[in-house]
Each structure stands twice: as structure tokens, then as C-alpha cells.
Design a protein around this nucleic acid. Structure first.
Lengths: 107, 107
DNA sequence: GTTTAACATGTCGTTATGCGACATGTCGAG
DNA sequence: CTCGACATGTCGCATAACGACATGTTAAAC
């Protein structure tokens, strides 16, 4: 395929970062909530994806006041936000097309 | 992740089969249309995915009258249809959550 | 004060999948 | 007869997900 889709883990991470910066462990917890506790991402998946997102400039490190623990928070860059928006648009379109066809066959 | 998401190619194939049986090449063309000509699936992706879908019983061979060419059509099984439905539901939920968060950060 | 559970980050090896490139052949139009 | 659309398939490489493992911290409970 020419226009590569975002993978599910990446989409969840971007969505989780959409309204506020978060660090790794917080992402794990938030993502668990995003799908009603059904999705539990492994750290292997998370940190691999974070590294790639950093390399691509979709997210960036975010300095926070809390120095009490070893934490590294991340936030969306402008690019990352735009990518998320585009991907959501694409998904919405696909979902609509899918439901339309399912309905069409129920006649 | 415990509840593995369908991959994009698989989703597109199932959606394409949702309203009528199709053979490989027809799937390729239809999928190209599904995303407004943006997505072009390679045959490597298609036939690999088809084999897996058959193994999993999500699709099944469909006998058609047209014997003029070497064609093998496929159609959704009940299981496959249910899976598609579930995945579309999940996607709709995720898209909504994503848009909600994007909007929330625009304030 | 020590044990326990939640918090927190990361690596590594296996497995699965996507995908481009290649291969092969048919059919109809011009 | 040739060319492009139709049609199916394989192979090897690269990448990503994922579970398991590893390591350390902090706060609460006992």
C-alpha cells in the first residue's frame, strides 16, 4: 500500500497524548481506559513505538516540574497532531463505508 | 495487547466482501476505490491475507457460474461478518474518542 | 523497619505480517 | 499479432508487535 496506515498502538498513543502530555506508564494506564479496559499494551510495544514517534518528530519530550521520580513525559508536535487528525478522518471514512456495505447486504 | 485489532489490509478485504462475493483481482480494484484511489494493495499482501482468512474461517470459497477464466471468488462467513461488525464498532468508538480529545485540546 | 504493590523505564528474541519484485498465463480489442 | 487489462501466485526482506525478562523507586500497610 502506498499510504501506510497508522498501526493501532501508534494511534492509541497519539490519541492519549492529544489532550495532554503524558509519560510512559501514564500512557499505558490511559490507553487501557481508552478502550474500556480491553486493551493492555506491553512495554515492549510502547517504548518501541515511542522511539519511532520521536525519530519521526511526531512527539517530543516535555519537561515537567515533577522531579520526584524518573519520568519522561511526551507531547504531540504540530506534525503529530496533524497526522492524528488525518488518520482519524481516514478511519471515520472507512468505518462509514464498512457499515454502509454491511447494511446493504442485510436486505 | 490482548484484543488484537484487525490489520488494515484485512479490514479492507472484509469490507470489500461485505456486500457481495469477489475474487482476488476484483478485491484489488474495489479496495482501490474504497479509499478514493489512494490505497493500492499488492498481491503479496492480498493473497497472504486471503490464505489466513480462509484458515481462520472468516471467508470461504464461493462457486460462481463464470467458468471462462481462472477465478476464485470468496465470500464472508457468518463468523467473518461478525468480526467485521465488531471491528467497525471498535473503530467507531476509537475515532470518537480521538476526535473528542483533539477538540478538548483546541480550547 | 520491612515487606508488598503500584509506579516507572527499558531490552531482547521470536513471530507474524506487509509489501515490493518477480513469475506466469489468459483474453479481448485494435 | 501485439498490447494492456485481467488474473493468480511466490519469495525474501524489513518492520513491528508482543511477551518475557530485567531493574529500580516510592508509598502504604503491617
Amino acid at each position: 500500500m502506498e499510504a501506510k496506515p497508522l498501526t493501532e498502538p501508534v494511534l492509541l498513543i497519539l490519541t492519549s497524548l492529544a489532550n495532554q502530555p503524558r509519560h510512559g506508564y501514564a500512557l499505558l494506564k490511559d490507553i487501557e481506559g481508552l478502550s474500556g479496559g480491553r486493551v493492555r499494551m506491553s512495554t515492549g510495544t510502547l517504548f518501541g513505538a515511542l522511539r519511532r514517534l520521536l525519530e519521526d518528530g511526531w512527539i517530543e519530550p516535555f519537561e515537567q516540574m515533577d522531579t520526584s521520580r524518573q519520568k519522561q513525559a511526551y507531547r504531540l508536535t504540530t506534525v503529530g497532531r496533524r497526522q492524528l487528525q488525518m488518520e482519524l478522518d481516514r478511519m471515520r471514512q472507512l468505518t462509514r463505508a464498512g457499515f454502509a456495505r454491511l447494511r446493504a447486504s442485510e436486505v
